[in-house]
Amino acid sequence: MRASKTWRCLLLAAAAAVLAPLGLITLVQAQSQARQPDARRGAVIAAQGTPAGAPACALCHAFNGASDGSGAFPRIAGQSAFYLAGQLRDFASGVRTNAIMSPIAKALSPDDVADVAAYYAGVDAPFLPLKAPDAALVKRGEALAKVGSEERRIQSCDNCHGPGGAGEPPAIPYLAGQYANYIAFTLREWQRGFRKNSPDAMAVMAKKLDEQEGSVLNVEMG
């Protein structure tokens, strides 16, 4: 308990430091909503969770959204608020199933979702120094990601995810800088039906990749 309190204090301190340049935060898709998402409130949720029982996002994703680099948790810093909020809603509804994220998302109110998405969308986190991946894997992944494969009718990832995987916000997430293990993991989720929130695009695409390609692809992106 004590340790967790200390942790929380540290996070709050970090929050104060990060909140200074909040002018950068983009408030996406707010024009038709009466309530504007509150990124400051989102930062507090990220740091310490909610009274309703959602734990702090920072516990896994870090307060700056860079997560821990293991790939067990995706990088979410600077991902569009539209996309992040959509994923949280899908975790809650079960369109996307995940034993960790689904109960957390269910514990968040619609305002919590909007606020925390707005917060992470506005964070510009540094990239963690990671071990250089196998050059041959990167080369193979790059060919698939940037060009595709005619023989197997795999189009390039960049067609939708933007040049070099930079993303096509608000709807389509960036892949560049995302952790290789996470991309491999989530491609398997598509293949096996744990993610159903883009069945006509990503499920079809993921099923064209074999197990090795799942990892290859991602090394390049990471």
Partner: peptide
């Protein structure tokens, strides 16, 4: 010319 590589983005 083929979908891959000739018709790919950008």
């Amino acid at each position: 010319r083929y979908t891959v590589p000739d018709f790919q983005s950008p």
